[in-house]
């Protein structure tokens, strides 16, 4: 049986009928065509599916779509506002904090959730926030630098 759910995603209200066994990630990608969030492992180990639900970073592969009912969701597609990039997006480009780009949306969302709850994070707090986001390309240093830079810019 499908469930009727309503939620906000990137500021837009959405009503959908979803099968209970559909993950939030699949709903976002397949029903809403927001393909920024990726499936890298399907088991909560790589973080490439990270989105923000009610202000908190979560692995969207480990949440059912029906659980999104009444929630407010932000995906990477919702980071830039009216064509203006988020400070994190700017700093990721400036620091070459991305290479293949596959982990980037998840990495950005973990970082965004961090800055939302803690505008002035320490290096340890940055590392804690992205410890669950695997990147095989960059070696992480530039990602940490980019998050620091965005935080400084915000303050």
């Amino acid at each position: 049986m499908k469930h009727s759910i309503s939620f906000t995603i990137n500021g837009e209200k959405v009503h959908l009928e979803v099968e209970p066994h559909k993950t939030l990630l699949n709903m976002i990608r397949e029903d809403l065509n927001l393909t920024g969030a990726k499936e890298g492992c399907g088991a909560g180990e790589c973080g490439s599916c990270t989105v923000i639900v009610d202000g908190k970073a979560v692995n969207s592969c480990m949440m059912l779509a029906v659980e999104a009912d009444g929630k407010e969701i932000i995906t990477v597609e919702g980071l830039a506002k009216n064509g203006v990039l988020d400070a994190l997006q700017e700093s990721f480009i400036n620091n070459a904090a991305l290479q293949c780009g596959y982990c980037t949306p998840g990495m950005l969302m973990s970082a965004k959730a961090l800055l939302m709850r803690n505008p002035k994070p320490s290096e340890e707090e940055i590392k804690e926030a992205i410890a669950g986001n695997l990147c095989r390309c960059t070696g992480y240093k530039v990602i940490v630098d980019a998050i620091k830079e965005a935080a400084e810019k915000n303050n």
Binding site: G44, G47, T50, K56, A57, V58, N59, M62, M63, S110, A113, L114, E128, A129, I130, A131, G132, N133
Partner: peptide, 9 residues
């Protein structure tokens, strides 16, 4: 336990 985003759930 797990990662930050996992601990949110």
């Amino acid at each position: 336990v797990g990662s930050y985003q996992l601990r949110n759930r």
